[in-house]
Write a protein that binds this DNA or RNA. Structure first.
Length: 578
DNA sequence: GCCGTTTTCGGCCCGACTGTTTTCAGTCG
């Protein structure tokens, strides 16, 4: 059983945790953390890269030593560094780091003074009041730990982007009206359109902090204030979502926006670049060192000015992951025009109440028209998905009549007749070819047999791609966040075959799916596969999710030309026929 | 542990807040 990228990443993260608790060189710790991140975000299987003999030292932050470690890790299933560290450290001690106020130093104190090795033992020690009086532990710290242990993370997970947006938008609108505020922006992973966000980072432009913080504390959703200073505060909303608010004056706003948008890895990279140029970047601006410790400010009012000070063009937030964007910017190789929601002319995947949708065909069509979509494919389920009352060929023909009838009532949106046809376990399709040939669009999807072994799952999907009637492969990895992992499939082979067969792959905008991932979008682009950004709407409001999917596509470096449904409908039907 | 048209050794991003201090360490982002 092959080791996955996530396994390797988790191993290196644990190495970093254990080294940190030991008090190792922090830069060595950082090297392992960086390696974990790089491997986790890799679009290819690192195990396959190893067996193909690829040079892992090409990866950023991976040198001779780590490349060798990765190689042995995936071949033997074991990291010798990790095994060695685990022998010295009790299992479970890294769990302690997840608690607030506990970092490596205090965890070490707990281990050395009280021989605490697990959350359980920590809990007992806290209840007996044994923490207070240890160096670095006072009553407040002990109490915070006690509360965190009691709460044990019912809401500690990350929120889906679309869910976080429901909390972020009203709050940011409210903060923009704080006394003295001229604008407010959500930064952080939310602004980078990450598929999930852990907390909200909100930046408010105002001359003075305290009036804004008073205003914040009065927001109806605020449950408690965790920390509060002049320019910075942290609150927890009733939903459990943590919100960090930072107030900055106008001349710093750009620098603060860069800093608060992150990612952390991107910030470290641009600060390193700044150092090379004799500059220093902080959330207050870009500074040039002068004699006798004095410094002059050279940029900061806008994000553009910060990047310009580094001789870089503006880097869109969605690209700021330190996955090559800084180098690409320096060399003028950034994507010219990343795709946006406004570029999407149509949608090729939605459902109606004929199967599991919650709205009629006419309501769906009007919903699409109201949102400016110039075409919409009606793609209900096929018979195999019995729970949805999937369409038989006869019902499919009847739906065709209904489409023609509704079409006559529409002014600006062209309806396409389609189907989301099930890919059966042997890779054949759930409807006869004759029925599929009559349709404008055939979207193929796996809904059952999710646990097939990798080889069978891959072969099954490849066979479906070879069917000449298939136009789009829907939600290609089948994941549902947070509970269902993607099925085990070789995406590189799937995407390669999709390119050969002229089939587009879907980026499904359902908030729990967001399937393709950003890394797979980038892989699709490299392999020359068109991506269809589809809503999979089951109700008219679901069309609004397209904006989040467009954000994910930008994270995958996709430009307008890389996306199938940026094309006008005439061009599209030509592509399908061909 | 990584990395290099100023370096193969000596650096490695930067600042705020809290709680613990009695001038600052640890944590966090």
């Amino acid at each position: 059983m092959a080791l996955r990228n996530a396994d390797v990443a988790a191993g290196f993260d644990e190495v970093a945790d254990l080294l940190e608790i030991q008090g190792e060189n922090p830069f060595r710790v950082r090297a392992y953390r960086n390696a974990a991140r790089v491997v986790r975000d890799l679009p290819h299987d690192v195990a396959e890269m190893v067996s193909a003999g690829e040079d892992l030292t090409e990866l950023p932050g991976i040198g001779e030593d780590l490349a060798g470690q990765i190689e042995r890790f995936v071949k033997t299933g074991e990291s010798e560094v990790l095994s060695r560290l685990r022998k010295k450290a009790p299992a479970g001690i890294t769990q302690l780091l997840r608690l607030p106020s506990l970092g490596p130093k205090r965890v070490r104190t707990l281990r050395d003074r009280l021989h605490i090795r697990s959350l359980d033992e920590l809990g007992k020690a806290v209840e007996k009041g044994r923490l207070v009086g240890l160096p670095g532990f006072g009553p407040k710290t002990a109490e915070r730990i006690r509360e965190a242990l009691k709460a044990q993370a019912p809401t500690a997970g990350r929120l889906l982007l679309a869910v976080a947006a429901q909390y972020a938008r009203p709050l940011v609108a409210y903060l923009a009206k704080a006394p003295g505020a001229s604008r407010a922006e959500v930064a952080g992973s939310f602004r980078r359109f990450k598929e999930t966000v852990g907390d909200l980072d909100i930046l408010v432009c105002a001359p003075s902090g305290p009036p804004v913080m008073d205003h914040l504390a009065r927001w109806e959703d605020v449950e408690r204030v965790v920390a509060r200073g002049e320019p910075r505060a942290t609150v927890v909303l009733r939903s459990g979502l943590q919100v960090d608010v930072r107030v900055v004056p106008a001349e710093c706003f750009g620098a603060a926006l860069v800093y608060f948008t992150g990612s952390k890895a991107h910030n470290i990279e641009i600060r390193r670049l700044a150092q090379e140029k004799g500059l220093k970047i902080s959330e207050y601006g870009v500074f040039r060192e002068r004699a006798r410790g004095r410094e002059t400010r050279v940029a900061g009012e806008t994000e553009e000015s910060v990047y310009a000070a580094l001789a870089l063009p503006f880097i869109p937030p969605e690209l700021r992951e330190n996955l090559g964007e800084v180098k690409a910017a320096a060399e003028g190789r950034l994507p010219k025009r990343l795709v946006s929601r406004e570029d999407l002319r149509g949608d090729l995947h939605c459902h109606t109440d004929a199967t599991d949708g919650r709205a009629s065909l006419e309501e769906m069509a009007r919903g699409a028209e109201a949102r400016g979509l110039s075409y919409l494919a009606i793609t209900d389920h096929s018979p195999h998905l019995a729970v949805t009352r999937g369409l038989t060929p006869a019902r499919l023909r009847a739906q065709r009549k209904l489409i023609e009838k509704v079409q006559r009532k529409l002014e600006r949106t062209r309806l396409l007749a389609g189907i989301e046809v099930d890919v059966l376990e042997d890779g054949s399709l759930d409807l006869p070819a004759a029925a599929l040939r009559e349709l404008d669009v055939v979207v193929a999807a796996v809904h059952t047999g999710l646990r097939l072994p990798r080889e069978k799952q891959t072969a099954r999907i490849l066979r479906a791609l070879d069917d000449p009637n298939v136009d789009v492969l829907a939600h290609p990895t089948g994941r549902l966040m947070p509970e269902r992992e993607p099925y085990d499939v070789d995406m590189e082979r799937v995407l390669t075959r999709a390119e050969e067969a002229g089939v587009a792959v879907e980026l499904n905008a359902h908030p729990e799916r967001m399937d393709l991932s950003d890394a797979h979008c980038r892989m699709a682009k490299e392999l020359g596969v068109l991506v269809a950004i589809d809503s999979d709407a089951h109700a008219p409001t679901n069309f609004d999710n397209l904006a989040f999917a467009a954000g994910q596509a930008r994270r995958g470096w996709l430009e307008t030309g890389d996306v199938l449904n940026t094309r006008p409908v005439a061009e599209l039907t030509k592509l399908f026929r061909g």
